[in-house]
Design a protein around this nucleic acid. Structure first.
Lengths: 142, 142
DNA sequence: GTATTAATGCAAATAACTTGCATTTTATAA
DNA sequence: TTATAAAATGCAAGTTATTTGCATTAATAC
């Protein structure tokens, strides 16, 4: 999606107050290149082809980057998490309830809806960025 | 939320093509009485107080009822699934990204948004019911 | 009622994810 | 630079949520 340069990624990591390591940059770099949220398995698999990275390291990096606000963690009821770069903008996707197909939809806004929800809420008065998953059947499964 | 009579629950199970058992009715009955989606743990805990039900049975009933379209399975990035009755209507909730607070918000519609998303989609041409989770910080955590 | 097939309990197995610990590396200070 | 404190890493082992195998029991169909 975004595809940052190595220098930009380094800057992002530093500004987040984290140390710059090859593995950390690799995780972030990979996520900056894909268009759909990826699973940890996919990430480990892809990074293993270049570096010798352990899955524990991948999990720890995902956790620290997420904690620092650089990543978004998504769940599509597939039994494992998906991650994507945190762009600051909302993240909306269609998810197949039968197979593991997902499709990110860009260019729509539900800010008004979120405002309405907050107005009705008793427990929340603010939100951070949000994600929305709409379930259905993909063309293949329909 | 809905709170059906025993007869109504029985009818729902039969129409779904499933056998009517005490445990199955208990699971469905419990879910028909709570207002927010519940965790499996909460369900097991609550049902254990009345019946001697095994957690494997709870999981299997949740799976069969979900498969039959009577339940909705939700995930709030808490590491465990939540379930609620499938009402046919959309399910919208605010979710705290810090603690486990969730709040179901009723009475809003995002049908237009879903239509827009489908129009932009390449992989989907229909959706079933949907759920939307908006993340933020609850008043307690803010 | 009896047969068929699904439901259940219990224990063991998986899958996703986390942690402990000894060993590098990175960033900071001298 | 070089020394140092703190964080990152690999590896193996541990958790937690969820699933499964199997023998037994109960629900529906005939």
């Amino acid at each position: 999606m975004a595809s940052y340069t190595q220098e930009e990624l380094t800057g992002m990591v530093q500004e987040a107050g984290l140390r710059v390591t090859g593995h950390r940059l690799a995780v972030l770099g990979y996520l900056s290149k894909v268009k759909n949220p990826v699973t940890v398995y996919e990430l480990v698999d892809a990074l293993r082809k270049k570096d010798n990275i352990d899955q524990a390291t991948v999990y720890r990096n995902l956790a620290s980057l997420h904690e620092a606000g650089l990543l978004r963690r998504l769940d599509f009821n597939h039994g494992h998490a998906h991650y994507e770069l945190e762009t600051g903008r909302a993240s909306h996707q269609l998810v197949c309830s039968n197979c593991e197909t997902i499709e990110k939809i860009e260019g729509i806004s539900i800010d008004d809806t979120v405002k309405k929800m907050l107005k009705k809420s008793k427990k929340f008065k603010q939100t951070t960025t949000h994600s929305m998953e709409i379930y259905g059947l993909c063309k293949n499964c329909a």
